[in-house]
């Protein structure tokens, strides 16, 4: 099996089964680079599903990586709730002024209807078109921000922390509303053709919450939410650390966990063995300035630490590669994975 060439989907499914595929799967989680590819501004690029589909297909062909990314931009969900999205020329669209201005607003805000939302509809259309193009050749990754992490954009992080500590009733009410939305949004993406959902939950990372807090909040919310998502999920805590809670994360029903560059890949792999597939952990910020030699060394080192035995997907540490990362570096990462990531790993 190791000598034959697998499709991207077969490669990913094999590694998720904690077996060795033909080579280490590579997820280059590029969202904005498709705009460069098509010669469009970032705003123009995300205005039409057709652009994103074309961008994703071209990038997969160019970088020979193993997924299509259904994510348009992180605040698309906030946009659907009526929030503001701010576009910049050289980075991901950013959430604007929070739309929950005071805690009492939580009583009246209502989750958007996923099927009627224009921006979410465009993203669902893109996933559907991607599925028509790639069929079962490559996985399509949808993204849903966790109910526990969405309030950072809904009301601002400082106000959200104060809410957690000072107004537990309103916190619980917001979680209830967010859970309904998250499940509906994730399942709509799966229905449209997504293979799996990235459950994006940075507030649960131990960089933000202690394990005790996580067990009382993000963990219970993830268990309830993931149980209602009708497909596999990958939990991503952005660039945050999660090694001390991987055993708990595994109990939420998720199958993949994203790991931070602040954590040792070998340690993470050992902690996840047989329970979770590890995704990560290339440093997207530093990657802007990597030389070809650095790129090869870093990729090779990651493969040596996490590749053996399967259960590993190479990706960046944040879940979105910065606009500033040049094409040469992305090509270098791909080249190194194709060179050093062949099973059996010989490094």
């Amino acid at each position: 099996m190791t000598q034959t060439t697998m499709t991207s989907l077969q490669r990913v499914l094999t590694t998720l089964g904690h077996q060795e595929p033909d080579r280490v799967p590579l997820f280059l989680l590029v969202t904005m680079h498709g705009a460069k590819e098509l010669g469009l501004s970032i705003k123009e690029y995300f205005s039409k599903a057709e652009n994103v589909v074309e961008g994703q297909l071209r990038m997969r062909a160019k970088y020979r990586h193993d997924c299509l990314n259904g994510l348009f931009y992180a605040p698309i969900e906030v946009e659907a709730w009526g929030g503001e999205v701010i576009y910049v020329e050289n980075g991901p669209p950013n959430s604007g002024r929070p739309f929950i201005r005071k805690p009492e607003d939580i009583k009246t805000v209502e989750p958007p209807n996923v099927k009627e939302s224009k921006c979410l509809g465009e993203a669902l259309k893109a996933i559907n078109m991607m599925k028509e193009k790639v069929g079962d050749d490559a996985p399509i990754i949808g993204v849903a921000v966790s109910p526990f992490s969405l309030p950072v954009m809904q009301m601002g992080f400082d106000k959200y922390i104060e809410l957690m500590y000072e107004q537990p009733d309103l916190f619980n009410l917001l979680m209830k509303k967010n859970e309904e939305f998250c499940v509906a949004w994730a399942n709509a993406q799966l229905e449209a053709g997504a293979t799996a959902i990235c459950y994006f939950d940075p507030v649960s990372s131990v960089t933000i919450s202690t394990r005790d807090m996580y067990l009382k909040t993000g963990f219970e919310i993830a268990k309830r939410t993931i149980a209602r998502i009708n497909g596999p999920t990958a939990t991503h805590v952005a660039s945050g650390r999660c090694l001390p809670i991987v055993g708990d994360i595994a109990q939420t029903g998720t199958v993949v966990v994203g790991t931070s560059v602040d954590e040792d890949l070998a340690e993470m792999k050992a902690a996840c063995k047989g329970k979770l597939t590890v995704l990560g952990n290339l440093n997207g910020i530093e990657m802007r300035n990597w030389t070809p030699e650095q790129t090869e060394t870093i990729v090779k080192d990651a493969i040596a630490k996490a590749g053996p035995g399967g259960g590993y997907i190479m990706a960046d540490n944040h879940g979105e590669i910065p606009w500033q990362v040049p094409e040469e570096v992305l090509l270098g990462i791909s080249e190194a994975v194709h060179k050093w990531g062949r099973y059996p790993i010989e490094i």
Binding site: D158, I161, E162, M164, Y165, V206, T207, I208, S209, T210, M213, R241, P244
Partner: peptide
């Protein structure tokens, strides 16, 4: 070191 939450630091 990971023993304190960012939310505790803020509060």
């Amino acid at each position: 070191q990971g023993g304190v939450a960012l939310s505790q630091l803020y509060m």
